[in-house]
C-alpha cells in the first residue's frame, strides 16, 4: 500500500493539478511566450528565423505614429464608454431598485444586449449606421436634421463605436450595482429618516457612498474589458476609415496577422498588458479608500 500512501499524502497537490496545468498551459505560457517574442525581430515576410533584438521592437513601435494614436484612442474609447455606462447603469439600477409593475419584464429586456454576440451586434449596427441605406440617417432626414457619416467618417467613428459598447454593456453595470443595492442594510436609511434627511441628501450621503465599492468593481471589470475591445471594432470598421478607429488591440492584430510582424505585434501586446495591469492596480487602490 506504499503507492496509495503516496496519493493519500499528496492529495492536496494532486487535486488542483489539472486546473494548475490548465492555467499554466493556456494562460501563463502564452503571456510568457508573447513577452519572449517581443524581444525578437521575428517577421514571417522576411523568411528569416527569429533573432534576439533586445528592445528593438519596442523602439520601432514607439517611433510609429500609428502606435501613439492608438494609445490615445484606446483611452478615449475606454474612458468615454465606461463613464457613460457607469452613470447610465447606476441610474437604471436605482430605478430598478424600486417596486413597480412590469419591473421583471424590464429587467429581462435589459438583459438582452448582454447575451448578444458582439460580432452580430456589430453587423446589425453597421446596417443602422449605413449613411446611404441605413435606418439612423433615414430618421435624421425625416426629422429634418443634418445626416451623419457615423462609422464612415473619421470624426464620428469612435463615438459611434462607443455608442454600441454602451448599448451592449450598460446592463452589466446595472446588474452589478443592483446586487450591491440589494445588499445594503436598512438601518442608515431609518436613522436618516428620523433625522429628517431629504431624498437627495439620503442618496448623496448614504446610498452613493455605500454602493460606491460595488460601482467601482463594476467599473474595473468593464474598463479592463473596454481597454481590450476588439470584436465590435474589428467587425464594424476594421480600424477605419483610414486608421481612425485603430485601438491598440486592432493595431496588434494588424501587425501580427496582416503584416506578419510578430516581434512588433508582441511588443504592442505587452504594452497593452501593462496598461491593463496598472489600471487595475490603480482602481483597486481607489476602491480600498471607499471600503474604510
Amino acid at each position: 500500500m506504499i503507492k496509495s500512501g503516496f496519493f493519500e499524502r499528496n492529495l492536496k497537490y494532486l487535486f488542483p493539478l489539472p486546473a494548475l496545468l490548465f492555467v499554466l498551459l493556456l494562460m501563463v505560457f502564452p503571456v510568457l511566450y508573447t513577452l519572449f517574442v517581443s524581444f525578437t525581430d521575428w517577421t514571417l515576410t522576411s523568411g528569416r528565423p527569429m533573432k534576439f533584438a533586445g528592445l528593438g521592437s519596442y523602439l520601432k513601435i514607439m517611433g510609429e505614429p500609428r502606435f501613439l494614436d492608438a494609445v490615445g484612442r484606446t483611452f478615449y474609447f475606454t474612458i468615454g464608454a465606461v463613464l457613460a455606462e457607469a452613470v447610465l447603469g447606476t441610474t437604471i439600477a436605482l430605478v430598478l431598485n424600486r417596486e413597480f409593475r412590469g419591473k421583471n419584464t424590464l429587467k429581462f429586456i435589459l438583459l438582452l444586449p448582454l447575451v448578444a454576440t458582439p460580432v452580430a451586434v456589430g453587423i446589425v449596427f453597421n446596417l443602422f449606421y449605413d449613411p446611404t441605406i441605413g435606418f439612423l440617417n433615414y430618421i435624421l432626414s425625416v426629422l429634418g436634421l443634418p445626416q451623419s457619416g457615423w462609422v464612415t467618417a473619421s470624426s464620428t467613428v469612435l463615438p459611434s463605436l462607443m455608442l454600441v459598447d454602451i448599448w451592449q454593456w450598460t446592463p452589466m453595470i446595472s446588474l452589478i450595482v443592483l446586487a450591491g443595492l440589494a445588499g445594503l442594510s436598512n438601518e442608515p436609511y431609518e436613522s436618516a429618516k428620523v433625522d429628517g434627511a431629504t431624498s437627495v441628501q439620503t442618496f448623496v450621503h448614504i446610498t452613493l457612498p455605500m454602493v460606491m465599492p460595488t460601482i467601482l468593481t463594476a467599473i474595473i471589470l468593464r474598463a479592463v474589458d473596454a481597454l481590450k475591445t476588439y470584436d465590435i471594432i474589428y467587425a464594424m470598421t476594421g480600424g477605419g476609415p483610414g486608421y481612425s478607429s485603430e485601438t491598440l488591440n486592432i493595431l496588434a492584430y494588424k501587425f501580427s496577422f496582416e503584416y506578419f510582424n510578430m516581434g512588433q505585434a508582441s511588443s504592442i501586446l505587452v504594452f497593452l498588458f501593462f496598461i491593463v495591469l496598472l489600471f487595475s492596480i490603480g482602481v483597486t487602490k481607489i476602491r480600498k479608500l471607499f471600503e474604510l
Binding site: 449605413d130 449613411p131 446611404t132 445626416q147 457619416g149 457615423w150 462609422v151 464612415t152 467618417a153 470598421t237 477605419g240 476609415p241 483610414g242
Partner: peptide, 11 residues
C-alpha cells in the same frame, strides 16, 4: 455614395 472612403465591395 456617402461614406465611400470606408466602403469595400461588401458595402
Amino acid at each position: 455614395p456617402q461614406g465611400i472612403a470606408s466602403m469595400s465591395w461588401e458595402n
